Simulated scan of single mutants.
Amino acid sequence: MTSTTPKPLDGVRVLDLTRIISGPYCTRLLADCGAEVLKIEPAGGEHMRVKEPLRAGKSTYFGHFNAGKKSIEIDFRSEEDLGAIRKLAASCDVVVENFRPGVVQDLGLDFLTLSAGRKDLVYCSISGFGQTGPRSRHPAYAPILHALSGHDLAAMTYAEDVGKPFRTGIWYADLIGGLFAFSAIQTALIGQLRHGTGQYIDVALMDSMINLLVLEMQEVQTPSSFDRWLATPVKASDGHVIAVPITGRIFERLADLLDHPEWKDDARFNTQLERERNWPVLMALVEDWTKVRTAAECEIALMGAGIPCARYQTVAEAIKDEQVTARELMTDVGTGPEAFKVANLPFLFAGAPLPVGSHVPAVGEHTGAVLDPVRGTAVPGVTTANGAKGSQEASHV
């Protein structure tokens, strides 16, 4: 996908002080939209560079979050290097960081320091619990936020035969926090264009997780009169499918397709409310039909009749799905044996394709090109909050 049309964020420069997942995901999305993202890495590179899976000795996990950026390697214990980053920040429209609250102040890379003498800086801090409150300085990884936000116990109530909260390897908190930060930064840039002023943004992963639990938070305040209706999988001969014949018209199509017209007059199913109340019974009847057919046969027959249905796919199958292929969702990053696929943004701009950057920068690949022009100008040192130089081992979110 190529285009001569400018991308939405062409000309926007981002100082990326992030690491791990939430911050790098946010800034990669900004890079996808055309921003020049300057990723600041500690000596030797961010430790995610050695996180498996590895392809040709390089982390594709790191590459997924950092493709399309420029890498600048510094010593976070060096006041000279930190001074150069402060100078570099003066040429940036946006700064993003996801250190634990308090760390950027120690490094002299906080909003008050970097916005001195200018009013247009958009500065976004991403942290586990936000910049204020009793938990603000607590370390937080995604599983911690999943547990504290209520997500895991809420998910447990929807499962059967589970004696303890779920564990998950999908870091929802980091990813949704990165998405909220991505959205907030663009909102602030619009404000900058309209009003000439920047913004300090405080994104909390805990707040992001709670924002996902819409019906759950309303249920605990005003409980429904009966258990929530949940779509449930039914067996096929070679796997499972899920069908959602919830509305009246769709349910009637289901009854006709399965050759059970009497269901239309069954008091258990003849209104949407009763179908919701008796969903397990209805799905057991549907399963009598699906279990003697393959998942693909079920999907074709049900969807052909206008009944929402899908077979359960693995991730390997999903990224090769015909719909995914048709929309050109997956794009190649790297070349030769190092190449791997990454999902593009889940929205399409008609005038300007926004694919993931095709190159993952080597550690410090752009240090000289970016920092040499600013090192020539003396930058006053900034005394840290405790009088000490910042450490490259400063904690992330």
Rank of each mutant, 00 (worst) to 15 (best):
I144A: 05
S115W: 01
G387Y: 12
R100P: 11
Q131M: 11
L230I: 13
E297M: 09
Q199H: 11
S183M: 13
I40S: 01
S391E: 14
V122Q: 00
Q272M: 14
A188E: 03
K389A: 14
R293I: 03
I21V: 15
T232I: 11
I85V: 15
P24I: 05
D75H: 02
S3R: 01
Q192C: 01
A140Q: 11
F76P: 00
A231V: 15
K39M: 09
P361N: 03
R49K: 09
L348M: 08
I72Q: 02
H146K: 08
R19E: 10
P308N: 05
A84R: 02
G387L: 04
T5E: 12
G304E: 06
E274S: 12
A159F: 14
K70Y: 12
A184P: 04
I307Y: 12
Q221F: 07
S125I: 00
G128P: 13
A305I: 07
A243N: 01
P233T: 13
G196Y: 06
Y61N: 04
S237C: 09
C92D: 08
L257H: 07
L189Y: 00
L212T: 13
L258N: 04
E365P: 12
S136L: 05
D266R: 02
F99P: 05
L254P: 10
G44N: 08
M209L: 15
G191F: 00
A90W: 00
R137C: 07
L285N: 05
Q218R: 07
D321L: 10
P361V: 07
D266L: 08
L215C: 02
R249T: 14
T331G: 10
E276W: 10
Y61T: 03
A43P: 04
A31E: 09
Y141F: 15
T290K: 01
S358W: 01
Y123H: 14
D120C: 01
P233E: 08
E365T: 02
T384V: 00
D81W: 04
L282Y: 13
D106F: 01
K264M: 09
F182W: 14
V244D: 07
T331Y: 04
S149Q: 10
T222W: 06
A116N: 09
Y312I: 15
E80G: 07
G45E: 09
A67H: 06
L329S: 06
G368Q: 12
S125L: 01
F349T: 11
S358L: 02
L107I: 07
A378K: 09
V203P: 02
P346C: 04
G45I: 06
Y172I: 15
K264H: 10
R311Y: 03
R194P: 00
T60C: 08
I85D: 08
R77E: 13
A159W: 12
F226V: 12
V104K: 00
M48F: 15
D174N: 10
I246T: 12
N278H: 15
E97R: 00
C26M: 11
A267H: 13
P337S: 06
T384I: 00
P361D: 03
A116D: 14
F349C: 11
G248R: 10
V360L: 08
L348I: 14
L38M: 11
V374Q: 02
H195F: 10
P101S: 05
A301D: 13
R135T: 09
I74H: 05
F166P: 10
D120E: 13
K264S: 05
D75Q: 03
G163E: 15
G381F: 09
